[in-house]
Simulated assay, not measured.
Amino acid sequence: MEFLGPYTPLILIIFVASMLIQGHLSRVYRTWGQIRNAHNLTGAQVARMMLDENGLRHIPVQMVRGQLTDHYDPLRKTVNLSEGNFNVPSVSAMAVAAHEVGHAIQDKVRMPALVLRGRMAVPLSLGMNLAPLLLLVGIVTQVTGLIWVGAALFGAALLFHLVTLPVEFDASRRALIYLNRRGLNGSAEEQHGARAVLNAAALTYVAGFAMAMAQFLNVLALARHSDD
């Protein structure tokens, strides 16, 4: 148990909860993905409209493979929608597309949290590939310095997830405001559906933060134990 760390049970609980949240997101997304929005607009059309009305005509809307692979690329300046959301005029597609354009608007206004997340992404992804190895080697060889480096990297990952929360919540807020202001949420049912999809997606980011927190606490406990 000392090798695994005292927070291992918590990590397992959060892992199970994360799987349940992913399942919930899939169900909500699938449910509202089968319901057409009142204006019969595809995700691509909603994204194009929202971009143009926010002075972002230069940003293309592209289709990418997979399901729920939708994202905004701040480096290439593109809004990328999964196949289902790009071509389908559903409530889910409308909500997801507006959310991704929300990120493009954040980029336009240089939202501090988005800028910070962008600067952290590449070096952190490289660091996190090394973190488990450094931690394992440090524990096996009892080299405390390596364990503390691993702990620092897990701490940086926690910061990344913390910064991600306001970025994602704000993009959803922008999406709902736009859809309601433009009357694209044509009924109370559609408003409920769009909010349900975005709220379910938000839960996945909360779960990611909880997992990062538990992992950091676990590694920190191992590092402190190595000093004893």
Rank of each mutant, 00 (worst) to 15 (best):
M211S: 14
N54Y: 15
A207C: 05
L133S: 11
G66V: 02
R117P: 01
L124P: 05
A200L: 04
D107N: 15
F86E: 00
L220V: 08
L176C: 03
H24W: 14
H71Q: 08
Y72T: 07
T204G: 03
Y178H: 05
A151L: 03
Y205D: 03
L114Y: 08
N85E: 04
R36Y: 09
M111R: 10
R110Q: 15
G84V: 04
M63W: 02
H58E: 15
Q191K: 11
V206K: 01
T42Y: 03
T69D: 01
G33I: 04
L198P: 01
H103R: 05
R182Q: 14
L20C: 07
W148I: 06
M213N: 09
F216A: 09
Q191C: 05
A17F: 15
V206D: 02
R30A: 11
L10W: 07
L217Y: 07
D70E: 04
P132D: 01
R36A: 12
L136G: 00
L25N: 04
S90W: 00
D107C: 11
R57I: 12
V163P: 08
A93Q: 02
K108T: 08
A214I: 04
A200H: 02
G150D: 03
G55Q: 08
L222C: 05
Q34L: 10
R30N: 10
L134R: 05
R181V: 11
G66F: 01
D227I: 10
G118F: 04
A44M: 12
A201L: 06
F169G: 10
D52R: 15
Q215T: 11
E100P: 00
R27W: 12
V96A: 01
G155V: 04
G155C: 07
A194R: 00
V115S: 09
V219W: 03
S82T: 09
T78L: 10
F209V: 07
A17Q: 04
N85L: 07
T78R: 13
E83A: 15
L222W: 01
A175N: 01
F216I: 05
N218H: 05
L220C: 09
A121H: 11
Y7L: 13
L56C: 11
L136H: 03
V16K: 03
P123K: 11
N54K: 13
P132L: 05
L20P: 02
M120F: 12
L162Q: 09
L25W: 00
A188C: 02
N80Q: 14
K77W: 06
R65F: 09
P6V: 14
Q22D: 11
G145R: 06
A214S: 03
N37R: 06
R48I: 10
L136I: 13
